[in-house]
Amino acid sequence: MKQHKTGLIVWVGAVLLLLAGALLAGPRERAETVQEAMRDAVLHNVNQVGLFGKAVNPGLISALIVTAVLLAAAALIRIFAIPRFQYQPGKLQLLLEEAVGLFDRMARDNSPHRFRFVGAYIFAAGAYIFVGTLFELLGIQAVTVHGHPVTLPAPLSDVNAAIALGTLSYLVILSGGIAANGIRGVGKTLKEFSLPISMSFRLFGALLSGLLVTELVYYYVNLSFVLPVVVGVLFTLLHALIQTYVLTMLTALYFGEVSEPSPKKEKKASGGKKPELP
């Protein structure tokens, strides 16, 4: 009991000491104002990162890192975990089966006529959105073309990534319509012409809002205590789940709608046509 009290006092003392130090140290000399930081968080036109000699948005670097991490993890799982799968699953196997089964069921439920391709696509898109959104929690640093450090954001907080995912999802839906109904499927898909824009900017808006709040919080050191636990971790987790669910569900839903076979029109009994004699 006495040891517990001592530990508690040490912990509170350390927290107060760090708080006092942070407040007394004062703000560092900033390379940009909060307005510039927020504007750059939206546009990514200042703090760009070099990629093979071209300046690109840091979101693209994040996207490549997320893809590399996901593929590496998938390869390791494929090599080491999947051959050891048992009929009575362990924890990792249960997690993987639940993840795959979740998107497979979502595809089957929303697109019962064609679900194999869309299931695979929403699995990848879901993994990308979820892991990509949580990626911003890592706070990986990169160096801009101007030599300043920049924290890599979530890939989808870059408007180009959001547009790419939104339009790719629309193309997937379009492909389902063409595969199931041909030209009619194209018509059914084009009817939802606002879908790529809504999908893209929904993702962009959701991720950007999180990014802006996080930027704002971290811009001021006084807000960097306790608040980041809620803003940085819980909100990020929450909207990672929500955005994953929303985009994958919408994609599966619209895919199912356009790939549903059109009912054949019943031929009207023509009065002039004589019945064929046996």
């Binding site: 690109v56 996901l70 593929l71 799982i77």
Partner: peptide, 27 residues
């Protein structure tokens, strides 16, 4: 909004690689 078609294409390529890779390796 600093929309860059080249970067969009790079994201597409990235997503296509990810989709194919995850399909064959995991899904």
């Amino acid at each position: 909004l600093n929309i860059d078609p080249q970067q969009i294409l790079l994201h597409w390529m990235n997503l296509a690689i990810l989709t194919g890779g995850l399909y064959f390796l995991l899904y």
